[in-house]
């Protein structure tokens, strides 16, 4: 009898039924690996001090996650790589020269307040790394906007402070930017390689594109969000980029500078905080691109990628809600009648 029962047992499980090798931790570690070229380029340009900051951000994130889960007697999930990725992203979004306590504070806010309080991985509404950075930017505005010139050599520790290309563009205009970089070709090359002032991991467009190509090839990120994000931003930069004249802007310079590539490929595409419906993702990307350029061209901050993604994060649940497919056979009025009784 017992034997018979076992033989005839059906395996009943809840969806999803498609099984594959992919797991959350595998994706998280792959994204971290894809960020490595850009992180290494950042360390190469900004020196060992930046490397320490990067490491502190990661250690802070891991320690925050461990402490919170230990304290609340929850399952410790350090090995899924999400805390590591948050720390890495936060570190890459900081200027290389911030004092050592900043990355630690930032990772604490990112991991504990923005992720764990919401119930851990999968429930957070906002991108943790960006919340960490936004918190730091609002709390320590002076420290967070001191940019060092890239040295590309480990001996020059006392590099000059300078403004980021976007900062120059905002404060002094295109003419000044051209004066510094010479001609357009030189500007594009420097931006592409990453030889410019900026956050540790955002400067090297080339290294970021290599990582993004890997993620796209493996299917870990979908093309919808980066394409609509960058497309909208390029269009706006082209149309409104120059004051007083339409269709005279420089889209390429805008795409390559600031955190545009890092944001579009690695942060806006965060599974948890972007809409899950494809059409919703395109809307999300368009919103990100639009808000980024709005803030860059009109707003009070030189860079808008972070705020744009965070603002669209607020709207992501709403976008998902409005693109949700209607249940088959369900009518809109039934709910209303039920309430009225």
């Amino acid at each position: 009898m017992e034997m018979l029962k076992k033989e005839h047992q059906l395996t009943i499980s809840v969806s999803p039924h498609v099984k594959s090798e992919e797991t959350t931790s595998r994706i998280m570690w792959s994204v971290s690996a894809a960020l490595m070229p850009a992180a290494l380029m950042g360390i190469y340009f900004f020196g060992p001090y930046a490397a320490v900051n990067l490491a502190l951000a990661i250690i802070g994130a891991l320690a925050g996650e461990y402490a919170f889960q230990k304290f609340l007697k929850r399952k410790i999930t350090l090995t899924d790589g999400s805390a590591f990725l948050t720390g890495l992203l936060l570190g890459m979004n900081l200027p290389g020269s911030v004092p050592f306590y900043l990355p630690v504070i930032g990772s604490f806010v990112a991991v504990v307040i923005c992720k764990q309080l919401f119930g851990g991985l999968g429930y957070n509404v906002f991108n943790p790394a960006l919340i960490g950075r936004a918190f730091l930017l609002i709390s320590f505005p002076k420290l967070m906007t001191i940019w060092k010139e890239p040295t590309a050599a480990f001996i020059h520790l006392d590099a000059k402070t300078t403004a980021t290309p976007l900062g120059i563009l905002k404060e002094e205009g295109v003419a000044k930017l051209m004066e510094i970089f010479g001609d357009k070709i030189n500007l594009y090359t420097q931006l592409f390689v990453g030889h410019r002032a900026g956050s540790i991991g955002e400067t090297s467009a080339f290294a970021l594109l290599v990582g993004a190509a890997f993620l796209l090839y493996r299917g870990y990120i979908s093309w919808e969000i980066p394409a609509s994000f960058l497309g909208t931003a390029a269009l706006m930069a082209w149309v409104f980029g120059t004051k007083g004249a339409l269709f005279a802007g420089d889209p390429l310079a805008h795409l390559l500078s600031g955190g545009m590539l890092l944001g579009a490929f690695f942060m806006a595409t965060d599974y948890v905080t972007c809409p899950s419906v494809k059409r919703g993702q395109i809307l999300f990307g368009i919103g990100c691109g639009f808000l980024t350029m709005l803030i860059r061209l009109k707003g009070g901050f030189p860079e808008g990628v972070m705020f744009a993604i965070l603002i669209m994060n607020c709207f992501a649940p709403l976008i998902d809600r409005s693109f949700r497919t209607r249940t088959f056979g369900a009518r809109k009025e039934t709910k209303e009648k039920e309430v009225r009784k």
Partner: peptide
Amino acid sequence: FIVTGLIALAFTGFSGLI
């Protein structure tokens, strides 16, 4: 309250726009 604070953080991006 925490969510409101975080949304407010995101909305600071609009400051200085108009």
